[in-house]
Write a protein that binds this DNA or RNA. Structure first.
Length: 571
RNA sequence: CGGGAUAUAGCGCAGCCUGGUAGCGCAUCUGGUUUGGGACCAGAGGGUCCGGUGUUCGAAUCACCGUAUCCCGACCA
């Protein structure tokens, strides 16, 4: 490709609405342009990268026998009503009507459509296991699209679905997909981790997310210091402390705390250790119980884990915090003065709260707290459960080492779905006894466009993007100096360009009549991994200059050797 | 959905407070001089000042109502 024929839309300054580095650089490098909130046009340079990521994914999935299909982005509401998700999915599902008033949605995912296809096409257990994938545009009407392509409303996703006669077969394919995902992200050149994840509302047995480690990530990942254990903080178990509850040393006292509305106020005003305080959160109870509200207690310095909380049998799912009025009606005191002592509603305490002694909490009387509370002596210990987020330094759930926490960008997610969709849509095959059997399913996603942004988050410097070899829009750029003025240089540049093209190398030829500084700055901004500079000075000696995008200095290479040199670099 | 901010040329911004001919830098086009790290000189083109309503002799500027975008939060007491 000649730069003179390429829409090279680089910018010196980044648009003011870009926040994270990948967003800024994608705009500055002329990879994407925003059309509206969460909607982006991929310009030629960006699309080349996107296509390279797609192709790596395609190759690896084809290798394990997954078959590519392409389903419509527009899906009829009937299928979604059949699965129950038309009502469940909420406002993230973009719904629309056609001219006849028939309802459709723009697909945020394709479990319904693939299951419909498979129930119509697969008849026998002999056709299983089978897996299908597509690389296609999804639409999710995000509450808050942000970080450019990272969380956009329309985005490119690879979604795969597998179908099985039983769980054993599902497990095999799941493991195969797990290692295929590792190969894909290895080939792309990302620093990533597979992490255990919550199976969420869909249910199912196992789930792993693939996270690219980056500070701009929106998820917290817990890692063990001494093992491979890694889990999304939503899922990571906060193990029960091994120690016994210390004996009570203090009497319980009712203290006036008129100006302490938060745990931090209390700690500051009364010089308490935050580890000796308890906060009380009031949520709606499960409607099937006789209660309306439930209190959840975590240590003052801990955070409630909503995913864990909503799994408690007595708690409403999804989790819903009580309003101030509801709290006041039920307890007689407002937020800021709540606690377990003489509490009129059921209570669940975190494991770490259960081993506290001499602790402080609200008195359920406005402006008052109890200090020196002790379980069993002052009140009975209620239900104990793991309801908090793990924190840095917690013991690893696998018993090896302690946890540290890093930010991650979720680029892939694999899931053992089970029979949720196949049952709802009655997707059956005949088993070896001729009996109709509901298929077991797995699903596997990769955010293709998000992979591109993540790669930039991990690979950039103050000059711009530094593409991993495998997904660079071009592998090599030729930058001739003053080509338009030199009769000897031009034919050499043209020949080198053709030789590299003939070697199946993605080569970009900067044939613009621009000054050296502009060429260098542009090519560094768009992140081409290898650069060859042609200049009269060194050509007189039969030399060209080579510089890798991460190199500090030029290397001189004989003109006759440069094609082989580049081939060696790329292999 | 709640809070905050912003909206002026393709991009980055000034002008608004104190109403009176819409500006600067980058980018673009023309000519010239330059040419190994984002050149210089001269000239040119490009505007629904987000939209609407109001106040006023006169509104980018003041008031009100919308819209869009970005950030933070979304119940963690």
């Amino acid at each position: 490709m000649r730069v003179s024929k390429l829409l090279l839309a680089t910018l010196k300054e980044s648009p003011s609405d870009a926040e994270v580095i990948s967003h800024k650089l994608m705009l500055r490098a002329g990879m994407v342009r925003k059309l509206a909130s969460g909607l982006y046009t991929w310009l030629p340079l960006g699309l080349r990268v996107l296509r390279k990521v797609e192709n790596i994914i395609r190759e690896e999935l084809n290798r394990v026998g997954s078959q590519e299909v392409l389903m419509p982005a527009t899906q009829p509401s009937e299928l979604w009503k059949e699965s129950g998700r038309w009502e469940q999915y909420g406002p993230e599902l973009l719904r629309m009507k056609d001219r006849h008033g028939r309802e459709f949605c723009f697909g945020p995912t394709h479990e319904e459509v693939i299951t419909d296809m498979v129930r119509n096409e697969l008849r026998s257990y002999k056709q299983l296991p089978a897996s299908f994938y597509q690389i296609q545009t999804k639409f999710r009407d995000e509450i808050r699209p942000r970080f450019g392509i990272m969380r956009s409303r329309e985005f490119l996703m690879k979604d795969a679905y597998s179908f099985h006669i039983d769980e054993v077969s599902l497990n095999e394919t799941y493991e195969e997909m797990h290692s295929t995902y590792c190969k894909i992200f290895d080939r792309i050149g990302l620093d990533y981790r597979p992490v255990q994840a919550d199976t969420g509302s869909i249910g199912g047995n196992a789930s792993h997310e693939f996270h690219v480690l980056a500070d701009s990530g929106e998820d917290d990942i817990a890692f063990s210091s001494n093992s491979d254990y890694a889990a999304n903080i939503e899922f990571a178990e906060a193990v029960a402390p091994a120690i016994e509850r210390p004996a009570a040393k203090k009497e319980m006292e009712l203290i006036d705390t008129p100006n302490a509305k938060t745990i931090n106020d209390l700690v500051e005003q009364f010089k308490l250790n935050i580890e000796d305080t308890v906060k009380t959160l009031i949520v709606h109870a499960n409607e099937e119980t006789e209660n309306t509200l439930v209190a959840l207690l975590v240590r003052g310095d801990h955070e409630l884990n909503e995913i864990k909380a909503e799994k408690l049998t007595g708690v409403a799912s999804p989790l819903c915090f009580a309003t101030d009025e509801e709290i006041r009606d039920a307890i007689g005191a407002g937020p800021g003065s709540l606690g377990p002592v003489k509490l009129s509603i059921p209570c669940v305490v975190d494991r770490s709260v259960a081993i506290m002694s001499d602790f402080s909490a609200g008195a359920n009387i406005d402006g008052k707290h109890y200090f020196g509370i002790n379980w069993e002596r002052d009140l009975t210990l209620p239900e104990v459960a793991d309801i908090r987020n793990v924190v840095e330094g917690d013991p690893s759930p696998d018993g090896k080492g302690t946890l540290s926490i890093k930010r991650g960008i979720e680029v892939g997610h694999i899931f053992q779905l089970g029979k949720k969709y196949s049952e709802a849509l009655k997707a059956t095959v005949l088993d070896d006894k001729g009996k109709a059997t509901v298929m077991t399913m797995g699903c596997y996603g990769i955010g293709v466009s998000r992979v591109v942004a993540s790669a930039i988050e991990q690979n950039h410097d103050d000059k711009g993007i530094i593409w991993p070899e495998s997904i660079a829009p071009f592998q090599v750029v030729i930058t001739p100096m003053n080509m338009h003025k030199s009769d000897t240089l031009k034919p050499i540049a043209e020949k080198l360009y053709n030789d590299l093209k003939d070697s199946d190398i993605d080569v970009l030829f900067d044939d613009r009549k621009e000054r050296a500084g502009i060429m260098f700055a542009d090519m560094e901004l768009i992140g081409i991994p290898h650069r060859i500079v042609l200049g009269d000075r060194s050509l007189e000696k039969g030399l060209v200059e080579y510089k890798g995008r991460r190199d500090a200095d030029n290397t001189e290479i004989a003109l006759d050797d440069i094609v082989q040199f580049i081939k060696d670099k790329l292999s």
